[in-house]
């Protein structure tokens, strides 16, 4: 098990290098350090000396991929790409264009993101599974057909609509909750209710459909017939057998998402004014702050890979047939 995890972690390294290569190519080839210096210093009266000085100050004074002035291995290691990538690997994201430490910003903004994403995720998962089990219990009935029709409709409406309609209804017309904002601690609960509810509702359509099809596939299997044959009630069959056996496919989809919850939701956070990583990213995109976007891309891929490894590990816990080697 331990050896497996180490191997998977090592396998993650080339992927992260690949991710870095993509972001590096995207950002530095087009927006060269010279361009960045010029943009930062302002268009007026920038001399080559000033640009050079800025590059030295910010550590951008090396060649991109290949240093002809160095000897041996340092031909490759003393380049912008390697230096920038190595820094990312120890989570040193450097400074944003506004001069703030990105790592500190990320640490600070992670918690509001989690405050929204985690409840949305848990409540959403429980609601989806519960409703799916309920309509599987009544499969083939009018309730089933009606729910499926509603589910398609929910799926077909843009998420932006739920947010805007929710804000107008609950905040503007009924004044139940504040329209946007954030506070840490229990005081902030009133700000969280609406985004969490909207997040859960928007995911309801696809969620119910997905879990319903999972359970329906399970319910046609032989062990279910056996369970019924020995006289178990349909509810017991569903909860004791179908739910338990359906857990494995549920895990595949769910565990991978958990680490990425840290990243927050771009749209939710920006609509509700929550100072999380999602709105951080959106602000960076609008301000064209490449260092922040780059850091978020890296962070996102690290979390995704952690999610993949966690998925594999959770398999061994829930399905004894799976052995990791």
């Amino acid at each position: 098990m331990f050896a497996y995890i180490v191997r998977r972690l090592l396998f993650a390294v080339p992927i992260l290098i690949g991710v870095n290569l993509i972001t590096f190519a995207l950002f530095f080839m087009v927006n060269t350090p010279d361009d960045m210096a010029r943009a930062q210093l302002g268009a007026k009266q920038t001399t080559p000396e000033m640009i050079q000085a800025w590059k030295v100050d910010h550590g951008y004074d090396k060649p991109l991929f290949f240093n002809t002035e160095s000897a041996g291995l340092s031909k490759i290691s003393e380049t912008l790409f390697v230096e920038q990538s190595l820094k990312l690997f120890v989570f040193d994201f450097g400074q944003s264009d506004s001069g703030r430490q990105i790592s500190a910003d990320i640490y600070e903004r992670m918690w509001p993101s989690l405050a929204i994403a985690l409840p949305t995720f848990i409540i959403g998962l429980v609601t989806n599974i519960a409703l799916a089990l309920l309509i599987v219990l009544f499969r083939g009935s009018v309730l089933d057909t009606a729910t499926m029709m509603v589910a398609v409709a929910i799926m077909s409406i843009s998420g932006l609509f739920y947010i805007i309609a929710g804000q107008v209804l609950f905040s503007k017309i009924w004044h139940w909750v504040p329209i946007s904002g954030y506070e840490s601690g229990w005081e902030g609960l009133k700000f969280l209710i609406l985004p969490v509810l909207i997040g859960v509702f928007a995911g309801l359509g696809s969620g119910i459909r997905w879990y319903r099809s999972l359970f329906l596939e399970e319910i046609n299997k032989d062990y279910v017939r056996t369970a019924r044959a020995k006289g178990l009630s349909e509810i017991k069959v569903l909860f004791a057998h179908v739910l338990q056996n359906g857990l494995l496919p549920i895990l595949t989809g769910v565990v991978v998402v958990i680490p990425t919850l840290f990243m927050g939701s771009l749209i939710m956070e920006s609509f509700f004014g929550i100072p999380g990583l999602g709105s951080y990213t959106i602000d960076a995109i609008n301000a064209q702050d490449f260092s922040i976007v780059k850091s978020m891309v890296f962070l996102g891929s690290v979390l995704y890979i952690i999610g993949l490894i966690l998925t594999d590990i959770s398999y061994t816990y829930f399905d004894p047939r799976v052995r990791l080697q």
């Binding site: 992927i15 690949g18 991710v19 993509i22 972001t23 995207l26 950002f27 087009v30 927006n31 990425t260 990243m263 771009l266 990213t281 995109i285 064209q288 490449f290 976007v293 780059k294 978020m296 891309v297 996102g300 891929s301 995704y304 890979i305």
Partner: peptide, 18 residues
């Protein structure tokens, strides 16, 4: 796997910025 590991919106955003 590499492309997949980058969050979708971010990859698109990065490419569009470029």
């Amino acid at each position: 796997t590499t492309l997949n590991s980058i969050p979708g919106v971010l990859l698109i955003a990065a490419a569009v910025l470029v």
